[in-house]
Amino acid sequence: MPQYETPLGAGPGAGGPLIRFDGVVKRFGDNTVLDHLDFTVAPGERVTLIGPSGSGKTTILRLLMTLEQVTDGVIWVGGEPLSHMPKGGRLVRANERHQRRVRRQIGMVFQQFNLFPNMTVRQNITEGPVHSLGVPRGEADRRAAELLEMVDLADKIDAHPTQLSGGQQQRVAIARALAMRPRILLLDEVTSALDPELVTGVLDVLRTVAETTDITMLLVTHEMQFARDVSHRVLMFDQGRIVEEGPPEQIFGDPREERTRAFLHAVLD
């Protein structure tokens, strides 16, 4: 692994962007998924990543959640490096301890929900807060009940994940991520694994989250209408680079790049 060395102080300050990708490269073997990617996300901003499959959208979310590590470049979160840590005036690769501390601000909802089958709905939601954040059990239980109320599953608190439909499982997964009180929420194709009639319920919950909180969101989705409704900005990716970016009205209504037009044409028809 090459060490990325940068003088300290090059990162964004406290008043700057919440997320910053700085020359980020990600390769899997010979396959370059992200190619010197630079972009920033402001606090409270909701950004949708679109593009053909294999264009690197999901990899961006997985790098932010530290499920993958960068090949080169630095990812900054809240003015601190996430992929790296300062040591002797330089940035070196972050260790597990550093990443745990910085990623505390980040939550993620997965395409396949990934609920824990050995726990009830309540335990799924309280396990993180109680054991990772040290929230007292009673408080975590109360918060779980509130969140389940919000996702309209209050009666399922003692159910097992296997007793729920896909849409219900995904709503529990959203509640589970929100229970960690993240500043940043990553949504990775959260409706792609659902039967069509279950998609609306999940999107309604996410609309509520978008309207009632100031959580910064990064979404990878194929639900273009939803992306248009909730996001402040849309990034169009192709082959590990940003082809075009802009407000949703412009990207969806009047795309400038041929590549964007072709992609939207393909997904909307």
Binding site: M65, L67, R100, R104, G107, F116, N118, E127, H131
Partner: peptide
């Protein structure tokens, strides 16, 4: 692997992941 990724997203320690998710499954 997806179960492990969920524990990372909930910022669990190695021991907590092992005790609460990996061993029971």
């Amino acid at each position: 692997r997806a179960q492990i990724e969920a524990t990372i997203a909930l910022n669990m320690s190695w021991w907590r992941r092992t005790r609460s998710v990996v061993l029971p499954q």
